[in-house]
């Protein structure tokens, strides 16, 4: 148990003293996972709505694929993105390997299936309720998507949060495409992996606690906002 209490006090110390190196790592983690989730939402929300509302050949296969890809191993995504962005790969000339941008690409791919699959579910459920009314009003396809996405905003926020949780917690993809370069691509999870491999379990666990606190904080904030808004909007 001494490891655990040591970890707790280390985590506290890092937070209280606002250790600049730790702040940089936390900032990068939030920036990378946040951008990835933002981009995944920009693509995934409309994609989910399209899948929920329109029929086209191959739609069923796409839905099954999205659902399956929710559990995609981060390492596999990382490896795929690495091969794409490697200087010997097809997109090597962009020069993004071992940069935060590469990590954003990988995490976006990781989060996209979650956001798209969950928002498809949310929109499909809403359509059950709204379908007749919207058809009665003569709302067009695009208008239906926009209306349902907006009216499902509180549930969709949960989908986006699930994506953020996955992005912030994964280590496999960012390790491969970011390279865990100190001060450049070192995130909370790769630092934890590194400190663990150095046998500094207390520091690793301390950082883990900070990560958990961060993700919990974001979730709590969104939960409270959602509660308040739900009560207000019915």
């Amino acid at each position: 148990m001494s490891d655990l209490s040591q970890a707790l006090s280390l985590a506290l110390e890092l937070v209280v003293t606002l250790d600049p190196q730790m702040l940089g790592i936390v900032r990068l983690s939030v920036l990378v996972s946040g951008s990835a989730v933002l981009l995944a939402a920009l693509i995934g929300l409309p994609l989910g709505a399209v899948l929920a509302l329109s029929a086209f050949p191959g739609r069923g296969a796409l839905v099954v694929m999205l659902n399956a890809f929710m559990g995609l191993p981060p390492v596999v995504v990382g490896l795929g993105v690495y091969l794409l962005l490697s200087r010997a790969g097809p997109l090597g000339e962009a020069g993004l390997l071992f940069t935060p941008a590469a990590m954003v690409v990988a995490q976006t791919l990781l989060v996209l299936p979650i956001v798209a699959a969950l928002s498809r579910q949310v929109v499909a459920d809403l359509w059950e309720e709204y379908g007749e009314q919207l058809r009665s009003l003569g709302v067009s396809g695009l208008g239906r998507m926009a209306t349902l996405l907006w009216d499902g905003r509180f549930s969709l926020l949960t989908a986006v949060l699930a994506g953020f949780g996955r992005a912030a917690a994964e280590v496999g993809a960012v390790m491969i495409v970011g390279g865990n370069i100190k001060g450049v691509t070192r995130t909370m999870t790769t630092t934890i992996a590194l400190e663990t491999s150095k046998g500094d379990l207390a520091l690793a666990l301390g950082l883990g606690l900070i990560l958990i606190a961060l993700v919990t904080g974001v979730n709590a904030a969104v939960f409270l906002v959602g509660q308040w808004a739900r009560r207000r909007m019915g």
Partner: peptide, 28 residues
């Protein structure tokens, strides 16, 4: 297609560019 992907990636790098990303560096 590749051109499009590169353009998309350019957006990514803008979205995630850390301050002073144009520093002179090598990868070891």
């Amino acid at each position: 297609m590749k051109r499009l992907l590169l353009a998309v990636l350019a957006v990514f790098s803008l979205a995630a560019a850390p301050a002073g990303a144009e520093d002179r560096f090598i990868t070891l």
